[in-house]
Amino acid sequence: MLNYYFKDSIQAFLTKNTEEIIGEISLANQYDSTLAQNKSWEVQISILRDAFENIEGTIFFEFSIPRMGKRVDVLAIIHGVVFVIKFKVGEHNYNRSNLEQVWDYALDLKNFHEPSHKAFLVPILVATEAKYSSVEILTTSHKDNLSLPIKVNKEEFRTVIGRTIEFFGDAHELHPDHFAKGRYYPTPTIVEAALTLYNSHTVDEITRSDAEAKNLTKTTSTISKIIATAKQEKRKIICFVTGVPGAGKTLVGLKVATSHLDEINGNASVYLSGNGPLVAILQEALARDKIKNEKANGIKLTKGKAKSSVKTFVQNIHHYRDAYLVDPKAPYDHVAIFDEAQRAWSREQTVKFMRQKKRSA
């Protein structure tokens, strides 16, 4: 499996006809493409052709961000600058939800995709039929080589590409193959943010538990000792935590995950669940609490920034699995906590599913 549906040099992209490009994207898509989706790709290709004329670089369609479960509409690497592009074909307005989405793409790349850590990232929302564009290029105050989202219509898109290249100059050159194969690897800054979030003890407040604190402490302490033993003896150990609903299993998992986030000292952990709504609720609740705490300290924090720290240790197991169908290397994490493990497939069923997924890719 590849973590994109289409990749080529921009020069080669410009020479291919639209049907050929859409055909390549559709063949790589594991889901059936709708007529509306194909029409959208057709419009995108036309706009990109005009914007990228006489420009050298690499273009990706539907680029997957490792373990985040998100695909960027179009990602282009030009003179070391990574353009993260979201298209809204036929849209007349720059809706806030669309701006937040392209901003989240850029943040997730910056925080979790190793080749993007030092790259210049420029998120762009293209509302094709909008009456105006905001072509001003503003970087964040964190000196992280990340620009704020740019709002542009189809007429001004080419201008934005040119101005952005001039603004950043020739950035550090990125090899497209290395970028495409980039692994999931949280930045030290985002890990530190996750640790800060945990140290405020907000996890306890969002997880109802009927278990006594003594039992929870004893369980998490025992698991931590087992983790230390596995590390010292270089062994793989599996633990099973059982209990009735409300016993505090989720809370134990979150505490273990957030207690072992120090990758520098050989600890990196993640809480994984196949329960999509649970993952969404945990991420949302923790992000909101993070924003609330920062506001009390006089610091304004966007939800995108807050959620990035939460995503370090709370993730969807399906996205985790898909990432390592692409990446053959061992996962970044040393400790993986699987919620709802009783619903896991047998080895035979898992192998069967993975074979089907590879054939369909």
Rank of each mutant, 00 (worst) to 15 (best):
G57N: 08
L48G: 00
F52G: 03
E19K: 10
S33Q: 10
S46M: 14
R49C: 11
L35Y: 11
K39T: 07
G57Q: 08
K70P: 07
E56W: 02
S40E: 10
I55F: 13
Q30K: 06
F61A: 00
N54G: 09
S46I: 14
N54T: 11
N17Q: 12
Q30T: 12
A51P: 04
T18E: 14
A28E: 07
S33E: 09
I55Q: 09
F63L: 05
A36S: 15
P66R: 04
F52Y: 15
Q11T: 11
E56C: 14
M68Q: 11
S40M: 07
Q30A: 15
I47R: 02
N38W: 05
P66M: 07
A51N: 09
F52R: 04
L27N: 14
S64N: 12
I21Q: 03
R49N: 15
I55L: 14
Q44K: 12
G69Y: 04
Q30G: 12
D50G: 10
S9N: 08
T58D: 08
M68A: 10
S46D: 13
I21F: 00
N38G: 06
F13D: 00
R67S: 05
S9K: 03
I21D: 00
L27I: 12
I55S: 09
E20L: 06
I55N: 06
Q11A: 06
I59A: 06
V43D: 11
K16H: 09
E42K: 08
E20T: 13
D32K: 15
I55G: 05
A36L: 14
F13S: 00
I25M: 03
E56H: 14
Q44W: 03
